[in-house]
């Protein structure tokens, strides 16, 4: 078994004449936190959508744990253990916080098509759901609707829901975007903690988060890989400085 959980080769996506992701070869080492950074429009989210099959690649391949998943459906890839979060908060707003987590846990029961069973058959998941919520500090909000949570807590709920699937590979799309400082710090610690025994690939703009918790950083620019390596190396790369500050400063 190779050291890499996820390998893309020549991954390319064009929309009409515009190439959003161009020939990206990315290798994500197993059980590390890998950050994907880059200026706006660098193709980070498109790349995420390719990995999770929300977009079809124009060219190239995606190999997850030695299996080629390029042509798989999004739900099948998720069931394989490659689970994503979203840039905008993605909860089920009119479900309670507990039910949000329970929807994810329910897949393990294999009763998702059982329309003849009582929903009380899902109560066996309550303990597991409450444990997950307690783990991320949302236990007190279990009974309220997800729509009524504050923004930071919605994002926390999202992570709890993703964790409910116990995925070996988590893709986090800007997990701290739009958060207050305190929340950022909490989410940062949470990611660090849950990444034990898992592989995490995240798109993140907040450099303090990237610097503190990621093992490897890949910088994208105009759909292409510009630089790759640990924070200290990447942050001193002249090409990266140029990309972020503009050509004149290089």
């Amino acid at each position: 078994m190779s050291d890499f959980a996820l390998v893309t080769s020549g991954l390319t996506k064009t929309f009409g004449g515009f190439t959003a992701v161009k020939n990206v070869d990315l290798k994500v080492r197993r059980h590390t936190i890998h950050a994907l950074i880059g200026p706006n429009g660098a193709g980070k989210t498109t790349f995420f959508n390719l990995l999770t099959k929300f977009h079809k690649p124009t060219a190239g391949s995606i190999v997850f744990e030695s299996t080629d998943i390029t042509a798989e459906s999004p739900a099948a890839t998720a069931r394989r253990g490659l689970v994503r979060s979203f840039q905008i908060s993605a909860t089920f707003p009119h479900l309670t916080v507990k039910d949000n987590v329970r929807v994810a846990l329910q897949r393990k029961l294999g009763t998702q098509y059982h329309f003849w069973k009582s929903s009380r058959s899902l109560d066996v998941l309550d303990d597991a759901a409450m444990r997950l919520l307690a783990d991320v500090g949302l236990a007190d909000a279990a009974a309220i609707n997800a729509a009524d949570l504050s923004y930071g807590r919605k994002r926390t709920l999202e992570i709890a829901t993703t964790l409910a699937l116990d995925p070996p590979f988590m893709l986090l799309d800007e997990p701290t975007q739009g958060m207050a400082i305190d929340d950022v710090d909490r989410i940062k610690k949470l990611i660090k903690r849950v990444a034990v025994g898992r592989t995490v690939l995240m798109v993140e703009h907040n450099m303090s988060v990237v610097a503190d918790i990621s093992d490897t950083i890949t910088v994208l620019q105009r759909g292409e890989i510009l630089a790759e390596g640990p924070y200290a190396q990447v942050s001193n790369d002249p090409a990266v400085k140029a990309a972020y500050l503009g050509g004149g400063h290089a």
Binding site: T52, S73, V83, A90, T91, F92, V103, R107, Q112, L165
Partner: peptide
């Protein structure tokens, strides 16, 4: 409530 999220949890919507 949220179709993409349901898909990302592994449900064939």
């Amino acid at each position: 409530e949220n179709e993409p999220r349901a898909t990302s949890l592994g449900y064939d919507t």
